[in-house]
Structure formats: C-alpha cells, structure tokens
Design a protein around this nucleic acid. Structure first.
Lengths: 93, 93
DNA sequence: AAAATTTGGTTTATAATATAAACTACTTTA
DNA sequence: TAAAGTAGTTTATATTATAAACCAAATTTT
C-alpha cells in the first residue's frame, strides 16, 4: 500500500536542496539560498542535517577572503532521493 | 521554481488519508486505520485537522450500537490535493 | 453474572521539527 | 572609522507528529 517516506527528505526545504543538488551536482550556500528563498538560518540547519545523514558533502573554503560553503550530493543521497520519489508515488497515484 | 507545499497535506498520514479518500469517496475510521497502519490516536488527530480545514467531511453515526466515523473528501479537499501534487512535481522533476 | 477483553474512538503528554530571530566574524564602502 | 553588507551559525520558540493513556460501551469468557 503506502510506502514509508524518509522523514529527512519529507521536508519542503530539504527536498528543494536535494532537488537542486541532484541537477547541478555542485552548489554553494548563496545559490541554494537564492533558489530556495530560505532564510540563512533555516538553510544552514537543513544543510547540516543532510550532511550528517551523508546525503550531501559540504566543503567549506574561502573565496578570496569570504567564506564559501559548497555542497554536492552523494551517491547515498541520490539513492535516498530516488527511493523517496518512488515511495511518494504510492500516495499520489 | 519551487512551489509552496500545503503544510496540511505535506504530512505522511494526512496525505495517505487524502489519497484513500480521493479514490473511494467514503471510508470509515476502521478502514482508514487498517490501510494507513496508523495508531488510533494519531488517526483521530489528523482526521480532525483535515476536517477543520474543510478538506474532508466527518459524519459520526452508530452502526447498530457501535460508533462509526465516516469520512468523505470535499471538493475543497480534492482541489487542495490536486494543487499539492502539481506543486510537488516542481521538486521531483 | 462478574470479570476480562475488544471496539471505536478521544485526550493529553512528549518528542521531534521547522523556522525565525539574534548573533558572530569578517569585509567593504562612505 | 563608523555604517552597512556578506556569509554564515547558534539559540529560542512555535508548530507538528506521535505515542501513551484514557474512556464508554459492547462483547466474550469463566
């Protein structure tokens, strides 16, 4: 019947982040913030959660003198996203 | 870009309830409980929320001597569900 | 016919989550 | 050098989801 929905992905902002990362393979904090229209605080927290779950990889560098946070999706993340979408379809079909 | 997801529908259990009601047009508490595998308490609360939003109509009757709670989806509910699905696709496409 | 169990729920307490607001540290501009 | 901007993080709070406890009536068991 209905499949379980990964609670980590069943969140509007985290899903948006993953959706972006799956298509671009690399995005920084500013880019994600613009695209998702999220506040910095919310974005920061949700990036952390995805990172801790191993769904994305976060690299903190400096662009000249300014900090820069780069995110990439991992294969684990791609997998989780695909499964989430598959399971979601049991609800909306 | 990404469309807003109705928070009332972006919940695993409420989405499952709506998904069921959209296909059967009438279901009682026991049926919904079986199909969703939810606990009674959780189901009771979520039915209330959908009812208060006007997404479903709840009718409490008696089946012989036992109480029976019947739920139907409303046209407002059908609309909200359709919009939710449409908006969701901006994330998973 | 009591006692125990089941049915069909509701209410309440608690844990988890999302989000905004406040803050930090540094840089650039006036 | 003071004000404003950038790129975030931390913390506090409001919301949500969920489970546990409860209730009233019906049914079954002993």
């Amino acid at each position: 019947m209905f499949k379980e929905l990964d609670p980590l992905l069943h969140s509007q902002l985290r899903l948006a982040i993953m959706s972006l990362l799956i298509s671009v393979e690399e995005a920084d904090f500013v880019f994600l913030k613009e695209k998702t229209k999220a506040t910095s605080g919310n974005l920061s927290v949700q990036i952390d959660k995805l990172n801790e779950a191993g769904y994305i990889k976060v690299t903190k560098t400096f662009q000249g003198k300014m900090p820069r946070t780069i995110c990439n999706i991992t294969s684990k993340g791609i997998n989780a996203f695909d499964t989430y979408v598959k399971n979601l379809k049991t609800y909306i079909k």
